[in-house]
Design a protein around this nucleic acid. Structure first.
Lengths: 339, 339
DNA sequence: TAAAATAAAGATACCGATAACATTATAATA
DNA sequence: TATTATAATGTTATCGGTATCTTTATTTTA
């Protein structure tokens, strides 16, 4: 492996001069610079980042720690984060926690050892706080994505859970729905908690009752199954049965519609469905599910930008929170007025 | 930042003893080990990977260089690769080349500087060879994914382009189609070239004519647009117009169906469509497009495994090629017999 | 022209770990 | 008990860069 010393010897200069050349220091004569540069090219020299990092204490490495890159929301976040990282000269490491705090913690330990310059994290749940604080102990800045953690002060890019939920609910209420169910993720995840709260608040705001039988918790994975929960709701006395369902995530939305179909319940005629977050359209036809679509690419892009600003000390000291608005796409799944 | 020396001082031992403890060397007394371990825990010490790498010449870093992580094929590849990498104690860096050789080359330079232990690459096209050879110059093993490069000897995980194409074509031919168009990516990409070849071979095999008017090149991006190409084909004399289309990638398939729809051409009644590779189903209904679905997760998983074997010298010297079979899903888009 | 200022390059130590060898303490053997 | 073998620990050099200080060469100023 070629080092700075090989170049130095070949060019008849000191290693320090070579270092100056590759770092574009200004106190190198043009003649020397040209000579060194030509030898670097000839010998195909590339500086060793480990050696550099050891001295500089910077790795130019960021990490994106999400629950599952295969969730299209995070796929797009990754793309955005990577674009910004590359643009700013950073590389991005990918980690999937599977919403598992132990796995997440193991990753974070690895990331600390790697001495990444910063981390973009969509935490598994509230108890991720411990691992994240560990990063802080190592002065590794963190930007939270999508899910914040109560009591944890750091930069974050979040969705406007309150407004977006309310607007989805209002859409249903305007269509005449009074018995609206919610299918949600675990309440130890901020997004689930806030969407739950906003769901309750909106019902109250419009003078509707909050029926615990219409509140179901599942999880946010792709294969969340709550066929039983659905069935249960539709075995309630008729006056309790929901006429609309609010699903709090892309996969929950899809699986809700699938479950309903399985139980031969017609959407939207018998029950309307709205969904927080959307999915890419890989079909030739229009999408079916009414969704508040999040600008997921920007979650990653803005997140990476904030992170790099933090790393490079160009950010204000006070932690910043960016709230990105969703885009509402009213579609067939909720287009059926009831009286 | 806490180092091995801080631990050593606190434990009243030499740095080397601490190093032995963290590396689980067997020649450390239990008493010493316990003492050191407790101090490591107390002081929250984590070894510095840069320092380790500098000595060991191993970074435990892999890279996944694909054209676009947002393409569901590569998303799934990434998930598979990451799973295997994590399992084996490696971390995965993510790079998107956007099928751009310059961008790809820039990435590869960064990866060399980072001294990654190995790279999983889906090359932009044939001229990626130069950059990939550069990696070899630095003894960084490469596993090619999905796209191989002629003349480049290395481990690879590929699709069976010949068989899969032939089977898709045969399916069409069995339905009575004689005028089959192909919508393909650029021919400087191996997959496109091989699918093109297999398309021609299959036509010949069944005694059908190869009509250049029915051979269209676009590209593999998400937003490939070939509405004009489609229109052109359907402005041919009736006896030349295709009754079926073979799209050589997931996005090409989707966009083909979309374009046809735009031109009010009915699928499958007026033209059947089959597609190489599929997409995840994010809808409640059955997918429409007949597709040869690739086990993308395994492309990544197996690729990472081969790569790690190569890195850790447990692989046979001779480069290996793994060919993963596709799964055929005949769906509505091609289910219409013609006489 | 001598003294001071500036530019260009070199020497050395260090970043944080580990490999290789050296030393000391302890146990086994003659 | 003296001698070896073995176990446990320490010392030093090194990985490939860069920060810092020093030296040498060149230019500017008085």
């Amino acid at each position: 492996m070629i080092t700075i010393y090989d170049i130095a010897k070949e060019a008849n200069v000191s290693a320090m001069t070579v270092s100056r050349v590759i770092n574009n220091a200004d106190n190198v004569s043009d003649k020397t610079r040209e000579k060194v540069e030509s030898i670097i090219k000839k010998m195909n020299y590339m500086p060793n980042s480990s050696a550099r990092s050891l001295v500089s204490k910077k790795t130019k490495l960021l990490s994106l720690l999400v629950t599952d890159i295969a969730n299209p929301f995070f796929t797009s976040v990754a793309r955005g984060a990577e674009d910004k990282a590359m643009q700013m000269g950073y590389q991005l490491m990918l980690c999937n926690s599977d919403e598992n705090v132990e796995k997440e913690s193991k990753y974070i330990d690895m990331l600390i050892s790697t001495r990444i310059d910063g981390a973009l994290i969509a935490p598994a749940n509230d108890s991720s706080q411990k691992s994240i604080l560990k990063l802080s102990k190592y002065n590794i800045p963190v930007v939270l994505i999508d899910r914040h953690i109560k009591g944890l002060k750091c930069d974050q890019v979040l969705s406007d859970n309150e407004t977006t939920t309310r607007r989805l609910m209002e859409h249903l209420i305007q269509q005449g729905h009074k018995k609206i169910a919610i299918i949600n993720g675990p309440l130890d995840i901020a997004t689930a908690r806030e969407r739950h709260q906003a769901y309750c608040d909106t019902l109250t705001l419009y003078g509707l009752v909050i029926n615990p039988n219409l509140i179901q918790q599942s999880h946010f994975f792709h294969d969340s199954d709550f066929s039983d929960a659905i069935q249960q709701m539709f075995q309630l006395p008729t006056n309790e049965q929901p006429t609309a369902i609010f699903a709090t995530s892309n996969f929950l939305g899809i699986n809700t519609v699938k479950s309903l179909k399985k139980h031969h319940i017609k959407v939207p005629e018998e029950v309307a469905v709205v969904c927080y977050d959307g999915v890419p359209n890989y079909t030739d036809s229009e999408l079916f599910l009414t969704a508040a679509e999040q600008p997921s690419y920007h979650f990653g892009y803005m997140g990476a930008q904030m992170l790099i600003e933090r790393i490079e000390n160009t950010a204000p000291e006070e932690p910043r929170t960016i709230v990105l608005p969703a885009e509402f796409n009213i579609r067939a799944s909720s287009l059926h007025k009831i009286e």
